[in-house]
Computed example of a mutant assay.
Amino acid sequence: MEILRYAAFTDRPEGGNPAGVVLDATGADDDQMLKVAADLGYSETAFLVPTGDRSCAVRYFSPKAEVPFCGHATIASAAAYAQRHGTGPLRLDTRAGLIDVRTDATPDGTVTATLTSVPPRSVPITEADLAALLAALRWSPADLDPALPVRIGYAGAWHPIVAAATRERLADLAYDMDALATLMAERDWTTVDLVWRESAEVFHARNPFPPGGVVEDPATGAAAAALGGYLRELGLVEPPVTVTVRQGDDLGRPGVLRVGIGADPAGGIDVTGTAVRLPD
Protein backbone atom coordinates (compact mmCIF):
# COMPACT_ATOMS: atom_id res chain seq x y z
CA MET A 1 0.00 0.00 0.00
CA GLU A 2 1.07 3.55 -0.70
CA ILE A 3 0.64 5.38 2.59
CA LEU A 4 0.28 9.16 2.45
CA ARG A 5 0.38 11.51 5.41
CA TYR A 6 -1.64 14.71 5.63
CA ALA A 7 -2.48 17.29 8.29
CA ALA A 8 -6.13 18.35 8.19
CA PHE A 9 -7.74 21.63 9.25
CA THR A 10 -4.50 23.55 8.80
CA ASP A 11 -2.36 25.07 6.07
CA ARG A 12 0.89 24.27 7.92
CA PRO A 13 2.40 20.82 8.50
CA GLU A 14 2.89 21.53 12.19
CA GLY A 15 -0.78 22.38 12.74
CA GLY A 16 -4.08 20.54 12.62
CA ASN A 17 -4.59 16.81 12.92
CA PRO A 18 -2.34 14.33 11.10
CA ALA A 19 -3.99 11.43 9.29
CA GLY A 20 -2.82 8.54 7.21
CA VAL A 21 -4.39 8.10 3.78
CA VAL A 22 -4.31 5.04 1.54
CA LEU A 23 -5.92 5.98 -1.77
CA ASP A 24 -6.15 2.37 -2.97
CA ALA A 25 -6.49 -0.26 -0.27
CA THR A 26 -7.99 -2.86 -2.61
CA GLY A 27 -7.48 -6.34 -1.15
CA ALA A 28 -6.37 -5.19 2.31
CA ASP A 29 -8.03 -7.01 5.20
CA ASP A 30 -8.94 -5.70 8.65
CA ASP A 31 -5.73 -6.91 10.28
CA GLN A 32 -3.58 -5.23 7.63
CA MET A 33 -5.44 -1.94 7.95
CA LEU A 34 -5.27 -1.99 11.74
CA LYS A 35 -1.53 -2.72 11.62
CA VAL A 36 -0.89 0.21 9.26
CA ALA A 37 -2.93 2.52 11.52
CA ALA A 38 -1.08 1.31 14.61
CA ASP A 39 2.32 1.70 12.96
CA LEU A 40 1.50 5.26 11.89
CA GLY A 41 0.18 6.12 15.34
CA TYR A 42 -2.13 8.89 14.11
CA SER A 43 -5.59 9.12 15.61
CA GLU A 44 -7.00 7.85 12.29
CA THR A 45 -5.95 6.41 8.96
CA ALA A 46 -8.39 6.25 6.04
CA PHE A 47 -8.36 3.34 3.60
CA LEU A 48 -10.08 4.02 0.27
CA VAL A 49 -11.15 1.49 -2.34
CA PRO A 50 -12.17 3.04 -5.69
CA THR A 51 -15.67 2.01 -6.75
CA GLY A 52 -16.36 4.28 -9.72
CA ASP A 53 -15.80 7.72 -11.20
CA ARG A 54 -14.79 9.91 -8.22
CA SER A 55 -16.36 7.51 -5.75
CA CYS A 56 -14.76 5.25 -3.16
CA ALA A 57 -15.61 3.02 -0.27
CA VAL A 58 -13.67 4.08 2.82
CA ARG A 59 -12.88 2.66 6.24
CA TYR A 60 -11.24 4.44 9.15
CA PHE A 61 -8.92 2.85 11.71
CA SER A 62 -7.39 4.28 14.86
CA PRO A 63 -4.31 2.57 16.33
CA LYS A 64 -6.63 0.32 18.35
CA ALA A 65 -9.94 -0.04 16.53
CA GLU A 66 -12.11 0.82 13.55
CA VAL A 67 -14.46 3.82 13.78
CA PRO A 68 -17.52 4.35 11.54
CA PHE A 69 -16.63 7.87 10.44
CA CYS A 70 -13.75 10.32 10.85
CA GLY A 71 -13.95 13.92 9.70
CA HIS A 72 -10.30 14.92 9.68
CA ALA A 73 -9.25 11.78 7.79
CA THR A 74 -12.05 12.51 5.28
CA ILE A 75 -10.68 16.03 4.71
CA ALA A 76 -7.16 14.58 4.40
CA SER A 77 -8.36 11.89 1.97
CA ALA A 78 -10.17 14.44 -0.16
CA ALA A 79 -7.04 16.60 -0.35
CA ALA A 80 -4.90 13.61 -1.30
CA TYR A 81 -7.43 12.52 -3.90
CA ALA A 82 -7.66 16.04 -5.36
CA GLN A 83 -3.89 16.36 -5.67
CA ARG A 84 -3.75 13.00 -7.43
CA HIS A 85 -6.90 13.24 -9.59
CA GLY A 86 -7.89 16.92 -9.60
CA THR A 87 -10.33 18.96 -7.53
CA GLY A 88 -14.09 18.54 -7.69
CA PRO A 89 -16.70 16.30 -6.12
CA LEU A 90 -15.92 13.05 -4.37
CA ARG A 91 -18.42 10.57 -2.94
CA LEU A 92 -17.33 8.37 -0.04
CA ASP A 93 -19.26 5.31 1.09
CA THR A 94 -18.52 5.07 4.82
CA ARG A 95 -19.89 2.69 7.42
CA ALA A 96 -21.96 5.62 8.71
CA GLY A 97 -23.45 6.35 5.26
CA LEU A 98 -22.67 8.28 2.11
CA ILE A 99 -20.52 11.41 2.53
CA ASP A 100 -20.21 13.96 -0.27
CA VAL A 101 -17.04 16.03 -0.35
CA ARG A 102 -16.11 19.05 -2.50
CA THR A 103 -12.53 20.22 -3.04
CA ASP A 104 -10.91 23.39 -4.38
CA ALA A 105 -7.27 24.46 -4.59
CA THR A 106 -5.60 27.83 -4.08
CA PRO A 107 -2.88 29.02 -6.52
CA ASP A 108 -0.18 27.72 -4.14
CA GLY A 109 -1.72 24.24 -4.25
CA THR A 110 -3.35 24.19 -0.81
CA VAL A 111 -6.55 22.14 -0.96
CA THR A 112 -9.74 23.12 0.83
CA ALA A 113 -12.33 20.39 1.32
CA THR A 114 -15.92 20.50 2.53
CA LEU A 115 -17.67 17.35 3.69
CA THR A 116 -21.40 17.05 4.23
CA SER A 117 -22.23 14.75 7.11
CA VAL A 118 -25.06 12.28 7.40
CA PRO A 119 -28.14 13.82 9.06
CA PRO A 120 -27.20 14.66 12.66
CA ARG A 121 -29.14 14.08 15.84
CA SER A 122 -28.64 14.23 19.57
CA VAL A 123 -30.06 12.47 22.60
CA PRO A 124 -30.10 13.34 26.30
CA ILE A 125 -27.50 11.82 28.59
CA THR A 126 -28.67 9.86 31.62
CA GLU A 127 -27.88 11.15 35.08
CA ALA A 128 -25.77 8.08 35.79
CA ASP A 129 -23.76 8.45 32.59
CA LEU A 130 -23.26 12.17 33.21
CA ALA A 131 -21.98 11.48 36.73
CA ALA A 132 -19.60 8.80 35.42
CA LEU A 133 -18.43 11.05 32.58
CA LEU A 134 -17.71 14.00 34.88
CA ALA A 135 -15.91 11.73 37.34
CA ALA A 136 -13.69 10.32 34.57
CA LEU A 137 -12.97 13.83 33.30
CA ARG A 138 -12.32 14.97 36.89
CA TRP A 139 -14.82 17.78 36.37
CA SER A 140 -17.64 18.90 38.66
CA PRO A 141 -21.14 20.10 37.71
CA ALA A 142 -19.96 23.63 38.56
CA ASP A 143 -17.47 23.39 35.66
CA LEU A 144 -20.31 23.17 33.10
CA ASP A 145 -21.90 25.95 31.07
CA PRO A 146 -25.61 25.80 32.03
CA ALA A 147 -26.61 27.42 28.72
CA LEU A 148 -25.25 24.44 26.77
CA PRO A 149 -26.71 21.23 28.22
CA VAL A 150 -24.72 18.01 27.97
CA ARG A 151 -26.07 15.74 25.24
CA ILE A 152 -24.81 12.88 23.09
CA GLY A 153 -24.43 14.17 19.53
CA TYR A 154 -24.22 12.17 16.30
CA ALA A 155 -23.18 13.00 12.74
CA GLY A 156 -21.64 9.68 11.75
CA ALA A 157 -20.23 8.79 15.19
CA TRP A 158 -21.44 9.41 18.76
CA HIS A 159 -19.81 12.10 20.92
CA PRO A 160 -20.86 13.48 24.31
CA ILE A 161 -20.91 17.26 23.92
CA VAL A 162 -19.76 18.85 27.17
CA ALA A 163 -19.49 22.63 27.44
CA ALA A 164 -17.05 24.17 29.91
CA ALA A 165 -18.02 27.32 31.77
CA THR A 166 -14.56 28.86 31.28
CA ARG A 167 -11.62 28.66 28.91
CA GLU A 168 -9.42 27.81 31.90
CA ARG A 169 -11.49 24.71 32.63
CA LEU A 170 -11.12 23.58 29.01
CA ALA A 171 -7.37 24.19 29.08
CA ASP A 172 -6.87 22.07 32.21
CA LEU A 173 -7.33 18.57 30.78
CA ALA A 174 -6.15 15.80 33.11
CA TYR A 175 -8.70 13.00 32.87
CA ASP A 176 -8.68 9.38 34.06
CA MET A 177 -7.82 7.61 30.79
CA ASP A 178 -8.74 4.09 31.92
CA ALA A 179 -12.08 5.12 33.41
CA LEU A 180 -13.03 7.25 30.41
CA ALA A 181 -11.96 4.56 27.94
CA THR A 182 -14.09 1.96 29.71
CA LEU A 183 -17.17 4.22 29.82
CA MET A 184 -16.80 5.23 26.18
CA ALA A 185 -16.37 1.65 25.02
CA GLU A 186 -19.50 0.61 26.93
CA ARG A 187 -21.53 3.44 25.39
CA ASP A 188 -19.98 3.35 21.88
CA TRP A 189 -18.79 6.95 22.13
CA THR A 190 -15.97 7.83 19.73
CA THR A 191 -14.57 11.00 21.31
CA VAL A 192 -15.77 13.40 23.98
CA ASP A 193 -16.34 16.85 22.50
CA LEU A 194 -15.29 19.31 25.19
CA VAL A 195 -16.13 22.85 24.10
CA TRP A 196 -16.05 26.40 25.36
CA ARG A 197 -18.16 29.09 23.69
CA GLU A 198 -16.16 32.25 23.11
CA SER A 199 -19.04 33.94 21.28
CA ALA A 200 -22.25 32.98 19.51
CA GLU A 201 -20.34 31.69 16.48
CA VAL A 202 -16.87 30.82 17.83
CA PHE A 203 -16.09 27.72 19.89
CA HIS A 204 -12.89 26.19 21.26
CA ALA A 205 -12.75 22.40 21.47
CA ARG A 206 -10.74 19.50 22.84
CA ASN A 207 -11.48 15.84 22.14
CA PRO A 208 -10.24 13.02 24.40
CA PHE A 209 -10.03 9.79 22.38
CA PRO A 210 -8.95 6.98 24.73
CA PRO A 211 -10.85 4.19 22.87
CA GLY A 212 -8.52 4.80 19.93
CA GLY A 213 -5.42 4.74 22.09
CA VAL A 214 -4.98 8.51 21.73
CA VAL A 215 -5.05 10.87 24.71
CA GLU A 216 -6.43 13.74 22.64
CA ASP A 217 -7.47 14.27 19.03
CA PRO A 218 -6.05 17.60 17.74
CA ALA A 219 -8.92 18.42 15.31
CA THR A 220 -12.12 16.41 15.09
CA GLY A 221 -14.37 16.89 12.07
CA ALA A 222 -16.95 14.29 13.11
CA ALA A 223 -17.38 15.94 16.51
CA ALA A 224 -17.60 19.37 14.87
CA ALA A 225 -20.43 18.08 12.66
CA ALA A 226 -22.18 16.62 15.71
CA LEU A 227 -21.78 19.99 17.47
CA GLY A 228 -23.36 21.74 14.49
CA GLY A 229 -26.38 19.42 14.63
CA TYR A 230 -26.63 19.90 18.40
CA LEU A 231 -26.59 23.70 18.09
CA ARG A 232 -29.32 23.63 15.44
CA GLU A 233 -31.51 21.08 17.23
CA LEU A 234 -31.43 22.97 20.53
CA GLY A 235 -32.01 26.37 18.88
CA LEU A 236 -28.65 27.72 20.05
CA VAL A 237 -27.90 29.31 16.64
CA GLU A 238 -30.02 30.83 13.90
CA PRO A 239 -29.33 28.92 10.67
CA PRO A 240 -28.11 29.26 8.06
CA VAL A 241 -24.91 30.12 9.87
CA THR A 242 -21.24 29.21 9.87
CA VAL A 243 -19.64 28.45 13.21
CA THR A 244 -15.87 28.44 13.72
CA VAL A 245 -14.33 25.75 15.92
CA ARG A 246 -10.74 26.29 17.05
CA GLN A 247 -9.04 23.13 18.21
CA GLY A 248 -5.50 21.98 18.90
CA ASP A 249 -4.22 25.21 20.47
CA ASP A 250 -3.63 23.49 23.80
CA LEU A 251 -1.60 20.79 22.03
CA GLY A 252 0.53 23.19 20.02
CA ARG A 253 -1.18 22.01 16.80
CA PRO A 254 -3.72 24.77 16.07
CA GLY A 255 -6.47 23.97 13.63
CA VAL A 256 -9.60 25.71 12.34
CA LEU A 257 -12.85 23.97 11.41
CA ARG A 258 -15.67 25.84 9.68
CA VAL A 259 -19.06 24.32 10.48
CA GLY A 260 -21.85 25.20 8.06
CA ILE A 261 -25.28 24.75 9.65
CA GLY A 262 -28.14 24.85 7.15
CA ALA A 263 -31.76 25.67 7.88
CA ASP A 264 -33.10 22.22 6.95
CA PRO A 265 -33.50 20.39 10.29
CA ALA A 266 -32.87 17.07 8.54
CA GLY A 267 -29.93 18.27 6.45
CA GLY A 268 -26.32 17.24 6.96
CA ILE A 269 -23.75 19.55 8.48
CA ASP A 270 -20.93 20.96 6.33
CA VAL A 271 -17.41 20.87 7.76
CA THR A 272 -14.71 22.74 5.86
CA GLY A 273 -10.96 22.80 6.28
CA THR A 274 -7.66 22.91 4.48
CA ALA A 275 -5.18 20.06 4.39
CA VAL A 276 -1.48 19.81 3.57
CA ARG A 277 0.75 16.86 2.83
CA LEU A 278 3.33 15.88 5.44
CA PRO A 279 6.83 14.65 4.60
CA ASP A 280 7.05 10.89 4.16
Rank of each mutant, 00 (worst) to 15 (best):
R12K: 14
N207M: 03
T51Q: 08
G156Y: 07
P254E: 03
L257A: 12
S55W: 06
G260P: 03
G97N: 06
A7L: 04
A28S: 14
G252D: 01
T51R: 08
P120Y: 04
G255H: 07
I269N: 09
G15L: 02
V49T: 15
R187C: 12
D143A: 11
W196Y: 15
P146Y: 07
P265M: 08
Y42V: 02
D249S: 13
A142E: 15
G88T: 03
A65Q: 11
V21M: 06
G252N: 04
T244W: 11
V162G: 09
C56G: 01
A219I: 01
D145G: 09
L48F: 04
A78G: 09
P63C: 01
A7H: 11
R54Y: 04
P18S: 07
V241N: 10
L92M: 12
T190D: 05
G212N: 05
L257F: 13
R95P: 04
T10R: 09
V58L: 04
F61R: 00
S117K: 08
G229A: 05
E127K: 12
P63I: 00
R277Q: 15
I261D: 11
R121F: 15
D143S: 11
A205G: 09
A142W: 08
G156I: 03
T110Y: 07
G228E: 03
T272F: 11
R232L: 08
A181G: 15
S62L: 00
T220F: 00
I261A: 12
E127C: 05
G262I: 05
S43A: 14
I269Y: 08
L34T: 00
W158M: 14
V21A: 06
E44S: 00
L4S: 05
D108P: 09
R187T: 10
G229F: 04
